[in-house]
Protein backbone atom coordinates (compact mmCIF):
# COMPACT_ATOMS: atom_id res chain seq x y z
CA UNK A 1 0.00 0.00 0.00
CA UNK A 2 2.78 2.41 0.97
CA UNK A 3 4.61 1.43 -2.16
CA UNK A 4 1.51 2.17 -4.17
CA UNK A 5 1.19 5.63 -2.67
CA UNK A 6 4.86 6.43 -3.31
CA UNK A 7 4.52 5.19 -6.85
CA UNK A 8 1.32 7.19 -7.26
CA UNK A 9 3.13 10.31 -6.12
CA UNK A 10 5.96 9.64 -8.57
CA UNK A 11 3.43 9.08 -11.30
CA UNK A 12 1.72 12.37 -10.54
CA UNK A 13 4.96 14.08 -11.49
CA UNK A 14 5.58 11.60 -14.28
CA UNK A 15 3.88 13.25 -17.27
CA UNK A 16 5.63 16.54 -16.66
CA UNK A 17 9.07 14.95 -16.54
CA UNK A 18 8.76 12.54 -19.40
CA UNK A 19 6.83 14.94 -21.65
CA UNK A 20 8.12 15.40 -25.20
CA UNK A 21 8.69 11.67 -25.69
CA UNK A 22 7.91 9.80 -28.88
CA UNK A 23 4.30 8.87 -28.15
CA UNK A 24 2.57 12.19 -27.61
CA UNK A 25 -0.89 10.64 -27.93
CA UNK A 26 -0.14 7.94 -25.38
CA UNK A 27 -2.15 7.68 -22.16
CA UNK A 28 0.04 8.19 -19.17
CA UNK A 29 -2.42 7.07 -16.52
CA UNK A 30 -3.80 3.62 -17.22
CA UNK A 31 -6.05 1.73 -14.83
CA UNK A 32 -7.62 -1.69 -15.30
CA UNK A 33 -10.37 -3.68 -13.63
CA UNK A 34 -10.03 -6.47 -16.18
CA UNK A 35 -7.57 -9.33 -15.73
CA UNK A 36 -7.17 -9.87 -19.48
CA UNK A 37 -6.54 -6.19 -20.11
CA UNK A 38 -3.94 -6.22 -17.29
CA UNK A 39 -1.81 -8.70 -19.16
CA UNK A 40 -2.00 -6.87 -22.48
CA UNK A 41 -1.13 -3.64 -20.68
CA UNK A 42 2.07 -5.31 -19.34
CA UNK A 43 3.11 -5.91 -22.92
CA UNK A 44 2.21 -2.51 -24.36
CA UNK A 45 2.46 0.24 -21.77
CA UNK A 46 5.39 1.89 -20.07
CA UNK A 47 5.51 0.61 -16.53
CA UNK A 48 5.38 4.16 -15.22
CA UNK A 49 2.11 4.78 -17.05
CA UNK A 50 0.25 2.11 -15.10
CA UNK A 51 -1.65 3.57 -12.11
CA UNK A 52 -3.75 0.58 -11.11
CA UNK A 53 -4.20 -3.07 -12.00
CA UNK A 54 -6.85 -5.51 -10.89
CA UNK A 55 -5.98 -7.41 -7.68
CA UNK A 56 -5.43 -10.72 -9.51
CA UNK A 57 -2.78 -9.29 -11.83
CA UNK A 58 0.08 -10.39 -9.59
CA UNK A 59 -1.39 -13.86 -9.08
CA UNK A 60 0.76 -16.24 -11.14
CA UNK A 61 -1.96 -18.90 -11.21
CA UNK A 62 -4.16 -16.67 -13.31
CA UNK A 63 -1.73 -14.33 -15.05
CA UNK A 64 1.07 -14.83 -17.52
CA UNK A 65 3.93 -12.38 -17.08
CA UNK A 66 2.78 -12.10 -13.46
CA UNK A 67 6.33 -11.33 -12.40
CA UNK A 68 5.98 -8.07 -14.35
CA UNK A 69 3.14 -7.08 -12.03
CA UNK A 70 5.44 -6.99 -9.00
CA UNK A 71 6.03 -3.42 -7.98
CA UNK A 72 3.11 -2.16 -10.04
CA UNK A 73 0.20 -0.62 -8.13
CA UNK A 74 -2.67 -2.98 -7.53
CA UNK A 75 -6.07 -1.40 -7.03
CA UNK A 76 -9.23 -2.43 -5.20
CA UNK A 77 -12.04 -2.88 -7.69
CA UNK A 78 -14.08 -0.03 -6.21
CA UNK A 79 -15.27 3.29 -7.57
CA UNK A 80 -13.31 5.36 -5.08
CA UNK A 81 -10.05 3.52 -5.75
CA UNK A 82 -10.45 4.05 -9.50
CA UNK A 83 -11.34 7.75 -9.25
CA UNK A 84 -8.53 8.47 -6.80
CA UNK A 85 -5.93 7.23 -9.32
CA UNK A 86 -7.22 9.85 -11.75
CA UNK A 87 -6.73 7.60 -14.77
CA UNK A 88 -6.93 8.71 -18.42
CA UNK A 89 -8.44 5.38 -19.32
CA UNK A 90 -10.06 2.53 -17.37
CA UNK A 91 -10.33 -0.98 -18.79
CA UNK A 92 -13.40 -2.86 -17.62
CA UNK A 93 -15.02 -6.22 -18.14
CA UNK A 94 -18.65 -7.08 -18.75
CA UNK A 95 -18.94 -9.22 -15.61
CA UNK A 96 -16.74 -8.02 -12.78
CA UNK A 97 -16.62 -4.73 -10.85
CA UNK A 98 -19.72 -3.55 -12.71
CA UNK A 99 -20.54 -0.88 -10.12
CA UNK A 100 -17.01 0.55 -10.08
CA UNK A 101 -17.10 0.76 -13.88
CA UNK A 102 -20.45 2.54 -13.83
CA UNK A 103 -19.09 5.06 -11.32
CA UNK A 104 -15.98 5.71 -13.42
CA UNK A 105 -18.16 6.25 -16.49
CA UNK A 106 -20.49 8.60 -14.60
CA UNK A 107 -17.50 10.58 -13.38
CA UNK A 108 -16.62 11.22 -17.03
CA UNK A 109 -13.65 8.87 -17.22
CA UNK A 110 -12.92 7.09 -20.48
CA UNK A 111 -13.83 3.44 -19.93
CA UNK A 112 -13.03 0.69 -22.39
CA UNK A 113 -14.83 -2.62 -22.16
CA UNK A 114 -12.63 -5.50 -23.27
CA UNK A 115 -15.00 -8.25 -24.44
CA UNK A 116 -14.37 -11.88 -23.56
CA UNK A 117 -12.35 -13.52 -26.36
CA UNK A 118 -13.67 -16.82 -27.67
CA UNK A 119 -11.06 -17.63 -30.30
CA UNK A 120 -7.37 -17.28 -31.13
CA UNK A 121 -8.42 -15.05 -34.02
CA UNK A 122 -9.58 -12.53 -31.39
CA UNK A 123 -6.06 -12.11 -29.98
CA UNK A 124 -4.93 -9.37 -32.42
CA UNK A 125 -8.21 -7.51 -31.92
CA UNK A 126 -7.92 -7.71 -28.13
CA UNK A 127 -4.40 -6.30 -28.32
CA UNK A 128 -5.49 -3.58 -30.74
CA UNK A 129 -8.41 -2.49 -28.51
CA UNK A 130 -6.03 -1.93 -25.63
CA UNK A 131 -3.37 -0.36 -27.86
CA UNK A 132 -5.82 2.10 -29.41
CA UNK A 133 -7.12 3.10 -26.00
CA UNK A 134 -3.68 3.87 -24.64
CA UNK A 135 -2.16 5.22 -27.86
CA UNK A 136 0.43 2.48 -28.40
CA UNK A 137 -0.66 1.09 -31.77
CA UNK A 138 2.96 0.93 -32.90
CA UNK A 139 3.88 -1.51 -30.14
CA UNK A 140 0.79 -3.63 -30.78
CA UNK A 141 1.90 -4.61 -34.27
CA UNK A 142 5.28 -5.65 -32.89
CA UNK A 143 3.49 -8.22 -30.73
CA UNK A 144 0.81 -9.22 -33.22
CA UNK A 145 3.20 -10.04 -36.06
CA UNK A 146 5.18 -12.77 -34.22
CA UNK A 147 1.91 -14.17 -32.83
CA UNK A 148 0.49 -14.42 -36.36
CA UNK A 149 3.66 -16.12 -37.58
CA UNK A 150 3.64 -18.64 -34.74
CA UNK A 151 -0.06 -19.35 -35.19
CA UNK A 152 0.42 -19.92 -38.93
CA UNK A 153 3.34 -22.21 -38.26
CA UNK A 154 1.28 -24.26 -35.76
CA UNK A 155 -1.59 -24.49 -38.24
CA UNK A 156 0.79 -25.73 -40.96
CA UNK A 157 2.20 -28.43 -38.72
CA UNK A 158 -1.17 -29.78 -37.54
CA UNK A 159 -0.82 -33.52 -36.93
CA UNK A 160 -2.38 -35.47 -39.79
CA UNK A 161 -3.65 -38.17 -37.46
CA UNK A 162 -6.98 -36.92 -36.06
CA UNK A 163 -7.97 -40.05 -34.16
CA UNK A 164 -6.94 -39.01 -30.65
CA UNK A 165 -9.65 -37.57 -28.41
CA UNK A 166 -9.31 -35.26 -25.43
CA UNK A 167 -11.42 -33.69 -22.72
CA UNK A 168 -10.75 -30.54 -20.76
CA UNK A 169 -11.92 -31.08 -17.20
CA UNK A 170 -12.21 -28.09 -14.93
CA UNK A 171 -13.22 -27.51 -11.34
CA UNK A 172 -16.94 -28.19 -10.64
CA UNK A 173 -16.77 -30.93 -13.30
CA UNK A 174 -17.24 -28.52 -16.15
CA UNK A 175 -15.98 -29.68 -19.53
CA UNK A 176 -15.04 -27.42 -22.40
CA UNK A 177 -17.28 -27.38 -25.48
CA UNK A 178 -17.11 -26.13 -29.06
CA UNK A 179 -17.09 -22.38 -29.55
CA UNK A 180 -14.65 -21.72 -26.72
CA UNK A 181 -11.03 -20.69 -26.77
CA UNK A 182 -9.98 -23.90 -25.04
CA UNK A 183 -11.77 -26.03 -27.65
CA UNK A 184 -9.88 -24.26 -30.39
CA UNK A 185 -6.58 -24.80 -28.58
CA UNK A 186 -7.44 -28.49 -28.20
CA UNK A 187 -8.16 -28.84 -31.92
CA UNK A 188 -4.99 -27.03 -32.88
CA UNK A 189 -3.12 -29.30 -30.50
CA UNK A 190 -4.19 -32.25 -32.67
CA UNK A 191 -7.10 -33.63 -30.65
CA UNK A 192 -10.81 -34.10 -31.18
CA UNK A 193 -12.89 -32.67 -28.36
CA UNK A 194 -14.83 -35.62 -27.03
CA UNK A 195 -17.19 -33.34 -25.13
CA UNK A 196 -19.09 -32.63 -28.32
CA UNK A 197 -19.08 -36.20 -29.60
CA UNK A 198 -20.90 -37.99 -26.80
CA UNK A 199 -24.20 -36.97 -25.30
CA UNK A 200 -23.13 -37.67 -21.67
CA UNK A 201 -20.88 -34.65 -21.87
CA UNK A 202 -23.50 -32.27 -23.21
CA UNK A 203 -25.11 -31.41 -19.87
CA UNK A 204 -24.66 -27.82 -18.90
CA UNK A 205 -24.04 -28.49 -15.22
CA UNK A 206 -20.80 -30.42 -15.17
CA UNK A 207 -20.00 -34.03 -15.88
CA UNK A 208 -19.99 -36.71 -13.20
CA UNK A 209 -16.74 -38.59 -12.62
CA UNK A 210 -18.41 -41.84 -13.64
CA UNK A 211 -18.99 -40.54 -17.14
CA UNK A 212 -15.32 -39.69 -17.47
CA UNK A 213 -14.30 -43.23 -16.54
CA UNK A 214 -16.97 -45.01 -18.56
CA UNK A 215 -16.26 -42.97 -21.68
CA UNK A 216 -12.52 -42.58 -21.68
CA UNK A 217 -10.79 -40.02 -23.83
CA UNK A 218 -7.20 -40.50 -24.91
CA UNK A 219 -6.14 -37.42 -23.03
CA UNK A 220 -7.62 -35.74 -20.00
CA UNK A 221 -6.55 -32.13 -19.76
CA UNK A 222 -6.80 -30.88 -16.21
CA UNK A 223 -6.53 -27.37 -15.00
CA UNK A 224 -5.41 -27.58 -11.38
CA UNK A 225 -3.41 -24.43 -11.17
CA UNK A 226 -5.93 -22.30 -9.30
CA UNK A 227 -4.96 -21.05 -5.87
CA UNK A 228 -6.51 -22.44 -2.72
CA UNK A 229 -8.43 -25.60 -2.27
CA UNK A 230 -12.08 -26.25 -2.83
CA UNK A 231 -14.46 -29.16 -3.12
CA UNK A 232 -14.81 -28.29 -6.76
CA UNK A 233 -11.09 -28.77 -7.28
CA UNK A 234 -10.98 -31.86 -5.11
CA UNK A 235 -12.84 -33.65 -7.89
CA UNK A 236 -9.79 -33.24 -10.07
CA UNK A 237 -7.58 -35.03 -7.53
CA UNK A 238 -9.78 -38.09 -7.21
CA UNK A 239 -7.58 -41.23 -7.17
CA UNK A 240 -10.09 -43.01 -9.38
CA UNK A 241 -9.47 -40.38 -12.00
CA UNK A 242 -5.71 -40.81 -11.68
CA UNK A 243 -6.09 -44.56 -12.09
CA UNK A 244 -8.30 -44.28 -15.14
CA UNK A 245 -5.98 -41.79 -16.80
CA UNK A 246 -2.36 -42.82 -16.12
CA UNK A 247 0.60 -40.58 -16.91
CA UNK A 248 0.63 -40.13 -20.69
CA UNK A 249 -3.15 -39.80 -20.73
CA UNK A 250 -3.21 -36.83 -18.41
CA UNK A 251 -1.92 -33.32 -18.98
CA UNK A 252 -1.85 -30.22 -16.82
CA UNK A 253 -2.50 -26.93 -18.56
CA UNK A 254 -2.52 -23.97 -16.19
CA UNK A 255 -5.54 -21.68 -16.41
CA UNK A 256 -3.42 -18.61 -17.02
CA UNK A 257 -2.60 -19.85 -20.53
CA UNK A 258 -6.19 -19.86 -21.78
CA UNK A 259 -8.21 -17.82 -19.30
CA UNK A 260 -7.61 -14.85 -21.58
CA UNK A 261 -6.80 -14.89 -25.29
CA UNK A 262 -3.14 -13.90 -25.35
CA UNK A 263 -0.10 -14.67 -27.51
CA UNK A 264 0.99 -16.97 -24.67
CA UNK A 265 -2.10 -19.08 -25.25
CA UNK A 266 -0.13 -20.75 -28.03
CA UNK A 267 2.10 -22.25 -25.30
CA UNK A 268 -0.92 -24.39 -24.40
CA UNK A 269 -1.02 -25.62 -28.00
CA UNK A 270 2.66 -26.55 -27.79
CA UNK A 271 2.03 -28.53 -24.60
CA UNK A 272 -0.83 -30.39 -26.27
CA UNK A 273 1.34 -31.16 -29.29
CA UNK A 274 3.95 -32.70 -27.01
CA UNK A 275 1.29 -34.83 -25.30
CA UNK A 276 0.01 -35.84 -28.72
CA UNK A 277 3.48 -36.96 -29.75
CA UNK A 278 3.86 -38.97 -26.53
CA UNK A 279 0.55 -40.74 -27.09
CA UNK A 280 1.37 -41.54 -30.71
CA UNK A 281 4.70 -42.99 -29.65
CA UNK A 282 2.96 -45.49 -27.38
Amino acid sequence: MVKAIVLGAVLLLGPGLSGGGSALAASHRIASLNLCADQIIFMLADRSDIVGLSPLAADCANTVLCELARGLPSMRPTGEAVLARQPDVVFSSPFTAVAATAIARQAGLKTVDLPIAESLADVPEQIRIVARAIGREDRAEAIIAPFRARLAQLQRTMPADRRLTALVYEAHGFVVHKGSLADEVLTLGGFRNMADEQSVFRGANGVPLEALIANRADLLVIDRSAKGYSLAQAMLENPVLRQAYPAPHQLDVPARLWLCALPQTLDAVTRLRAAHARLEAQ
Partner: peptide, 10 residues
Protein backbone atom coordinates in the same frame (compact mmCIF):
# COMPACT_ATOMS: atom_id res chain seq x y z
CA UNK B 1 -11.73 14.22 -8.35
CA UNK B 2 -11.72 14.96 -4.64
CA UNK B 3 -15.16 16.58 -4.89
CA UNK B 4 -16.51 13.57 -6.76
CA UNK B 5 -15.07 11.11 -4.29
CA UNK B 6 -16.33 12.97 -1.22
CA UNK B 7 -19.65 14.14 -2.62
CA UNK B 8 -20.66 11.32 -4.94
CA UNK B 9 -19.10 8.27 -3.31
CA UNK B 10 -18.33 8.77 0.36
Amino acid sequence: VAATIVGQLR
